[in-house]
Write a protein that binds this DNA or RNA. Structure first.
Lengths: 221, 221
DNA sequence: TTAGAACTTGACCATTTGGTCAGGATTTGT
DNA sequence: ACAAATCCTGACCAAATGGTCAAGTTCTAA
C-alpha cells in the first residue's frame, strides 16, 4: 500500500518500474523546478515533461512538496559527494585547480541542479536552512582549516580562506545559473559552447591561484 | 480612463496619489517577485504587502505581467545608472575598486532588485533577452575595451577583460542573492552584518587587484 | 461650488492548480 | 497458472488565482 513512503533517493532494492519512473519524474521535476521555482512549478508541467499522467506523479511522491524535497536531497547529495577529499599534504595549487574544475563540471553537466539550489537560496532557503547550518558550515570550516594550515606553513599567500571558498562558488555557479546572460554578452545563441566553459575554468583558476600567490603574475607589458 | 497606460517608471507630471501608490506597489512587487519568481508571485500577495486591495493593483498596472515588466525596467535602469563612467585615463586600481564598491552597495541596499534579476536569468531571461543582447553587451564591450587599453599600456597585467567583469558581477551579486547561505555558514542569524559586507568588499577588491597585478601579494610566511 | 477626472473596492467569474480515488491493468513471486 | 502486490489513470474535487466590473468616494481645477 503506502507506496510514497519510500520515494526518497536512497532505496536500492526497489522494483525496476518504480526506479525507472522515479528517475524520470525526478529528472523532469529538476528541470521544471529550475525554470519556475517551487511555487511556480506545476505538477501538470512536471508530468508532461516526464511523459506520464499527473496522477502517476502523485502515486510515487504524494505531494509537490515531497517531490521537491526529494529533488533537493538529491542535489545536496551530489554537491557533497562530488568533491574529492582535500588533505593537508596535498599541493595547494593542484588541489584548488582540481576543485574549481570539479565545480565547473557540475555547472556544465547539471545546470538545472544548480538552478534549483539557487532558486531555493534566493527565496531564503526555507527548506534547507538545516543543511546550510550544519553539513555545509562544517564542510566550509574543515576546508578553510586546511587552507589556513597551508598559509601558516608558507605554502600559499595569506587569504581569507572561507571567503575564498565562497567566491569560488559564486564564480563557478554563475556559469550554470546565469548562462543566458553570459551567452548573450558573448554573442552566443542562448547556450554557451564547451570552449566557453573551458575558458571560464582556466580563468577562474588563474584568478584564484594569482590571489593565493601560486601563479606568477605576467609582467605588465 | 485608460489609467494603466502611464504605469511605467518615468512619468514625472503625475498626480500625487498615483505616484505614491505606484511606488508602494512596485516596492511590494519587487519583494514578492524576488521571493517567488514571476509565476510563483500572486497579485494578492503583492496587494497585501503593499497594503492595498488587489483590485487597486490592477487599476494601476493592468496585469501581473505588466507590473513585472515595470519592476524589471526599474531594476535595469538602476543597474545601468549606478556605475560611474570609466575613462581611459583613470587609475586602474582605483577604478576597479570603486566599481566593486558600487556593486556591493547595490547588493547590500537593493538585494531584492538583484534577486528579481537573478530569478529572471535563471529561468532563461525570456523578457530581458533584448536588454542582454544590446545594452548590456555594449556596456561590457565598452568597459572591456578600456581594460584592454590599460593592459596594452602596461598599466595592469594581462587578463581576459570580459570574463574579469563577469566574475566581478558574480562575486558581488552572490552577497545579495545567496545571503542566507553565507549567513548560515558564517554563523549569523539569517542576515549578514554590515561588517560582513565590508569584509567581502575588501576581499573581492583584493582578489581582483592581485589578479590584475595591481596589489602586491604578501610574502608566504 | 461644482462638474468631471481620478481613485477605490467588494463582489464576482473563468481558469488553473494540487490533490484524491476507485476501478482496471500489469507485474511478480511461487 | 494464479493470487497478491504493484502500478496506472481518467474523472473528479475544493481551493487559489488572475482578472473584471459597476457603483461609489475623493480629489482637482475653474
Amino acid at each position: 500500500m503506502d507506496a510514497e513512503t519510500n520515494a526518497t533517493a536512497d532505496d536500492s532494492s526497489q522494483g525496476r518500474i518504480r526506479q525507472e519512473n522515479i528517475e524520470k519524474i525526478m529528472k523532469a521535476a529538476e528541470k521544471v523546478f529550475a525554470g519556475n521555482g517551487f511555487r511556480g512549478a506545476t505538477t501538470a508541467a512536471i508530468a508532461e515533461e516526464a511523459g506520464l499522467p499527473k496522477a502517476n506523479i502523485h502515486y510515487y511522491f504524494g505531494t509537490k512538496a515531497k517531490l521537491y524535497r526529494a529533488v533537493l536531497d538529491d542535489i545536496i547529495a551530489l554537491w557533497l559527494s562530488s568533491f574529492r577529499e582535500i588533505g593537508e599534504n596535498d599541493d595547494p595549487a593542484t588541489t584548488l585547480a582540481d576543485y574549481i574544475r570539479a565545480k565547473m563540471q557540475l555547472s556544465q553537466n547539471r545546470p538545472n541542479a544548480s538552478k534549483v539550489f539557487a532558486n531555493e537560496l534566493i527565496r531564503g532557503a526555507p527548506r534547507i536552512s538545516g543543511y546550510l547550518e550544519t553539513e555545509l558550515k562544517e564542510w566550509v570550516e574543515e576546508k578553510a582549516a586546511i587552507l589556513d594550515h597551508w598559509i601558516e606553513e608558507g605554502r600559499m599567500a595569506p587569504v581569507d580562506s572561507k571567503r575564498l571558498l565562497f567566491h569560488i562558488w559564486s564564480m563557478t555557479q554563475t556559469w550554470a545559473d546565469f548562462e543566458v546572460q553570459w551567452a548573450a554578452v558573448l554573442g552566443r545563441k542562448k547556450k554557451l559552447k564547451a570552449e566557453d566553459f573551458d575558458a571560464a575554468t582556466d580563468f577562474i583558476i588563474t584568478i584564484v591561484l594569482r590571489t593565493c600567490g601560486l601563479q606568477p603574475i605576467p609582467s605588465r607589458s
